[in-house]
Nucleic acid binder design. Sequence first.
RNA 1: GGCCCGUUCGUCUAGGGGUUAGGACAGCAGAUUUUCAUUCUGUAAACACGAGUUCGAUUCUCGUACGGGCUACCA
Length: 518
Amino acid sequence: MENRKVRVRFAPSPTGPLHMGGVRTALYNYLFAKKNGGDFILRIEDTDTDRFVPGAEQYIIEALKWCGIEPNEGVGFGDGPYAPYRQSERKEKGVYAQYAKQLIDAGHAYYAFDSKEELDEQRKKFDALKKNFSYNAITRLNLKNSLTLSAEEVKNKIDAGETYVVRIKIPADEEIRFQDIVRGWVVVNASQLDDKVLFKSDGMPTYHLANVVDDYLMKITHVIRGEEWLPSAPLHLMLYRYLGWEDVMPHFSHLPLLLRPDGNGKLSKRDGDRLGFPVFPLDWEDPITKEKSSGYREKGYFPEAFINMLALLGWNPGTEQEIFSVEELCKVFSFEHIHKAGAKFDPEKAKWFNEQFLRAKPDAEIANHIRTSVKNHFQFNDDDRRLSDSFLNRAVQLLKPRVQFENEMIEKGNYLFTAPTVFDEQAIAKKWKDGCKEFFESLKETLSSLDEFTASNIEPTFKECAAKNNQKPGDVLFLFRILLSGQGGGVDLMGMAELLGKEEVIARITKGLLVIAK
RNA sequence: GGCCCGUUCGUCUAGGGGUUAGGACAGCAGAUUUUCAUUCUGUAAACACGAGUUCGAUUCUCGUACGGGCUACCA
């Protein structure tokens, strides 16, 4: 068993957009597979026909692609040797029924004919006695199933087309233990478990059966999933045992949950809406309710940053390195460094990760990314010099240290692309003195005679001019900035002047003076 | 309620029987940039509580508290 090729799976249910917690689970599966030269499989667990949401499956596939953590086998990624990978299709092929039958024949499962209403009634009765109803070794003796009914009655009911479910027969008292890779030994007594439904009356297997059968059939070696599955792991272990597969049972790793940034509780869709950060990798619109949810992609995050942030939420490399490429993560990932407690998600740190990746990206690459948005935003013609490599690369260079996202550059760097129409009056009022107008007139002349209009030439020229006009450089420098950009803060002033070019700088001074000079 | 899992700065975390309990984000202060941002430096900030084991416990054990998960013919 230990020599088997590592095979892991991500097995989401297509009930809506993939939550970032789900993405993290997929990521850890991916990293573990890559680290060990194994396979990463995408299996769609669509056994709940009621909760099926059109488009969700496509969303999952697209999200994994955007994140760069693509399965090498499974729905949407090319079928492998164990197709199909959609449980609804596997059910059609009769994959699960035979195992349910096997369990029944071996006495480890049974037919149950109790209707939902009857069970609800039982629950109510127990509630009244302040007890919990559980379909188990004790209560099943008083319920309608193939354990209490005669073989003939059972046959008659089935032949008559009465609906039934198949339940696992959990022993009354037995210690069940298994070793979880992140949590160590987990011990539960079978008396705490109930006779979970394995096969529903609609003919679909439940998650529990389908998941165990498929993991076995698909030769999965490690089950890496969220902590919410921990309580049902003992049930799964029983299934492996009863099906005779215990020797090839996968290793289990239950990951800590992602918690909301404020207060307590599991991170949910609502938190994103309320606190203003995305909970999903991509934008999503619910096909039925038309409710919209925002995604990291559309918010402007780099997938690498999103993945890096997610990787460090509940896992650490054991070193002080924080910035990782996916390739690096594949090399250093291991279960030993998975933290056991849930992790509160911090939107601020998520932004910081994006900032780090932005800083590391070549200016030209960012320029190429934003070129179209700049063109559309300012309605430039294709041949506008402000869309050229030389202009855009330089603009990016100036703007890069001041933003966390590419798409912030357009708003923040507005004045690099278009002359200001409004000026910060308050700031001007503070610094504007007699002689300023004259200074700027003289500056215009001096600058226009400059041969090489570069930052390193403009600066000394500017200072000389200020001295000649008896102006404090600090004051007029500030005013110069406002004349050029309309505002008191912004990118490196001399760099900005160089980028704008001689004509534009002079034009802006002229125009600005008309507006602000009193 | 029952069962399971967890608990180190505000947050993500490192560490682990003897440490000045380390880093990062966020915060604060200072320097540089005459502004803002960047950058740099500094600073504040944590072992939930109570027993036990031990020469010594934040680290091991047990309780308590708190938090989370599960408790469906949902996954």
